[in-house]
Design a protein around this nucleic acid. Structure first.
Length: 211
DNA sequence: ATCCCGAGGG
DNA sequence: CCCTCTGGAT
């Protein structure tokens, strides 16, 4: 990608979303880890509706390990995939207690060994809770990256991540991650991209395809 | 009908 | 690579 185009995009993201940040509600690394795990295939807003009750009832990793799985299921049922997520939370908490003294590990390689924690979740946690430069690729980052030419449509999420890391300044990774998400979530949406108002249409691969 | 800060299993 | 898990919002 031409550097000029790239800088235009980053400038536009700064103009649109100077204060982009994580929209999941949490107060500790463990709460963040659980909130991100819950966020699969649902919206952050939906996750924020169920976590207050969840975080009120359970606090430590051992609380989740010893919890009744059906109790967790009931608390999170509305966000979907609730059986898998409840099971993952319990198993993840058990491993945290066994191998990490109940604390959340601070590296991606350690985090992805936890049940229910994949590369995207691990990347979010290290970037958000421990300030490790990272580029988590979720559905928004993937879509926006492909539309704006940071990656090709046939690229896997891992390839998208590699290309973004190769292209974007490392000191801006964590902020840009959120700016990509804000742009995808509120502007360049999956079904309704606001192409006519978009300052970047000229370099978009899908201009005029949808609206 | 499609999408939402995915991960695990086949 | 594919499929499944799942409710809620639009």
């Amino acid at each position: 990608m031409i550097e000029k185009k790239q800088n235009r995009i980053l400038d536009e993201f700064d103009r649109l979303y100077p204060d982009a940040k994580c929209e999941l509600h949490y107060t500790t690394p463990l709460e963040l880890l659980i909130a991100v795990l819950l966020s699969a295939q649902t919206t952050d807003a939906s996750v924020n509706k169920v976590t207050p009750e969840l975080f009120k009832k359970y606090h430590s990793a051992s609380d989740y390990r010893d919890a009744n799985q059906e109790d967790i299921e009931q608390l999170i049922r509305r966000i979907g995939l609730y059986r898998n997520k409840a099971r993952s939370i319990k198993k993840m908490a058990a491993m945290l207690c066994e191998k990490y003294d109940g604390e959340v590990p601070q590296s991606i390689n350690e985090l992805i060994t936890l049940p229910g924690v994949g590369r995207k979740t691990a990347s979010v946690v290290v970037g958000e809770a421990f300030y490790v430069p990272s580029v988590p690729v979720d559905t928004h980052v993937e879509r926006v990256s492909k539309r704006l030419g940071f990656a090709k449509n046939e690229d896997s999420v891992l390839t998208v991540e590699k290309k973004l890391k190769r292209t974007l300044p490392r000191e801006r990774w964590n902020k840009l991650h959120h700016q990509f998400i804000f742009f995808g979530r509120y502007f360049c949406k999956a079904q309704s991209p606001r192409c006519k108002e978009c300052q970047l249409v000229d370099l978009c691969k899908e201009k005029n395809k949808k609206l």
